[in-house]
């Protein structure tokens, strides 16, 4: 790769139908950067989970926006998924039926670096970086632990399904 691809900023209403659009844009960006298909698959999964968190958790009504930023540098591609909603909350603002609660563990397992920022009333930002060349599988470093609990949500401490 000689020239870094330009920065991309997507802004759209935080609705379920937008998540696939973000995946399409990401696939185009990763293709231009010649990413390995297995890393692209991890990227699509992690970004889907981050966008889904915004759609499900960020806003009480359909009024908020989902922002996705893609920044390429010499090491890899960083994707920032941002909302301007209520901040990190343990329970979804709207979700029917309840979300599984597996989004953040998946993001941690699939990305080479991951940072979560947020505070009540100031929105949330998930920043994920994917390396052009991986020295190890991030899912080995940050494995998803647990199993499905009796309430249908993911229980990180469960050894077997309820």
């Amino acid at each position: 790769m000689t020239t870094p691809a330009p920065e991309v900023l997507l802004t759209m209403p935080a609705r379920p139908e937008g998540v696939g659009v973000v995946r399409q844009a990401l696939a185009g960006m990763a293709d231009a950067l010649d990413f390995d298909p297995t890393v692209l698959a991890d990227m699509k999964m992690a970004v889907t989970e981050a966008c889904t968190n915004v759609v499900v958790h960020a806003y009480d009504e359909d009024a908020g926006m989902l922002e996705v930023e893609m920044l390429a540098d010499e090491n890899g591609l960083t994707i920032v998924v941002r909302d301007h909603g209520a901040g990190i909350q343990p329970r979804p603002a709207r979700s029917e039926p309840p979300a599984l609660g597996l989004g953040l563990p998946l993001i941690a397992a699939l990305s080479d670096a991951f940072e979560l920022k947020g505070s009540a009333g100031h929105g949330t930002e998930v920043r994920m970086t994917f390396a052009y060349s991986r020295s190890a599988d991030p899912a080995t470093q940050n494995p998803v632990t647990g199993n499905v609990g009796a309430d249908g949500r993911w229980d990180p401490d469960a050894d077997s399904p309820a």
Binding site: K44, T48, T52, A99, L100, L102
Partner: peptide
Amino acid sequence: FVDSSVLGALLDARR
């Protein structure tokens, strides 16, 4: 492609 929303639906149906 399937995400955790799909897994949630599959696990509910399984239960």
